[in-house]
């Protein structure tokens, strides 16, 4: 694998994001939504607490819809306009392509996430927050984005239709999110044994994201996110390879 190739692909992808309205629409909507939920719905000011819990609690739900919207074009668009043929006949490996595209989208979302820095400034101005959980919360957000993106990359490789890719990936991500959401785990625990509840919750993005959000960096959570990303990107490679030898 050549880093030069990956770098070239990342550059090309990013120039594609910022060369079209996608990037700007995404960033504006993301910032508007996160601001709205943090300040208006969760009543950030009224709570009177110097932390970003209100923001991080909403983050998985905002990401649930916005990240698949970024990921849906990864492969479906290339297939639709025919440039996939160009890409796959260049002397690059599928691994380089998948990594390059994934990294570019990830960097882009991290950039959008970084633009929420006024929140951090606000809490440090208003109070004396514990920076640990805030840092971990952002780390969690970055990992969560990676996991959602990898799911989106897989669904995008399945089809030339971006809408189908989007819906599929939202549904899969919704499952991963809901599995650990308290109302759902409570409903399951009413009839299922505890180990099953834990197993289902263990698959959830939210469970692992919450640990980080509380300021705990647990190796298990990191391994979880890494394995989701690895598995989904590997599936992407399998799908793309299968399409070739259809």
């Amino acid at each position: 694998m050549s880093l030069k190739h990956v770098k070239a692909i990342v550059k090309k992808e990013l120039s594609g994001y910022f060369g079209s309205p996608v990037a700007y629409v995404f960033i504006v909507i993301f910032l508007l939504l996160s601001g709205f939920f943090t300040f208006s719905v969760s009543r950030f000011y009224e709570m009177g607490q110097a932390d970003l819990r209100a923001f991080f609690e909403w983050l998985p739900w905002i990401f649930l819809f916005l990240v698949p919207a970024v990921a849906m074009r990864l492969w479906a668009e290339e297939r639709r306009i025919g440039t996939l043929e160009l890409l796959l006949t260049l002397p690059v490996s599928i691994t380089e392509l998948i990594l390059g595209k994934f990294l570019a989208a990830w960097l882009f979302i991290c950039f959008a996430l970084a633009l929420t820095f006024p929140l951090v400034i606000t809490v440090t101005y208003l109070g004396d927050p514990d920076m640990g959980p805030i840092f971990c919360g952002y780390l969690g957000g970055v990992l969560l984005a990676a996991a959602l993106l990898s799911v989106g990359s897989m669904t995008s490789s399945l089809t030339r239709n971006q809408v189908i890719s989007f819906i599929l990936s939202v549904v899969i991500c919704l499952f991963f999110t809901l599995a650990g959401w308290p109302p759902v785990t409570e409903a399951i625990s009413a009839w299922a044994p505890a180990w099953l509840v834990d197993l289902v919750a263990g698959f959830s993005f939210v469970t692992h994201f919450q640990d980080l959000q509380r300021g705990i960096i647990d190796l298990r959570d990191l391994v979880y996110f890494a394995s989701v990303v690895f598995f989904m990107l590997f599936s992407t490679a399998v799908v793309l390879d299968n399409r070739r030898s259809l």
């Binding site: 030069k4 070239a8 692909i9 120039s15 594609g16 306009i81 002397p91």
Partner: peptide, 27 residues
């Protein structure tokens, strides 16, 4: 190999220079 696919697909969002630079880097 140099390959010109049917219908000459190219990235609509990129500039001509940007696209050719990308191809040169990959090569």
């Amino acid at each position: 190999i140099g390959y010109l696919p049917e219908n000459a697909p190219v990235y609509p969002d990129m500039t001509v220079l940007g696209f050719l630079n990308f191809c040169a880097e990959i090569r």
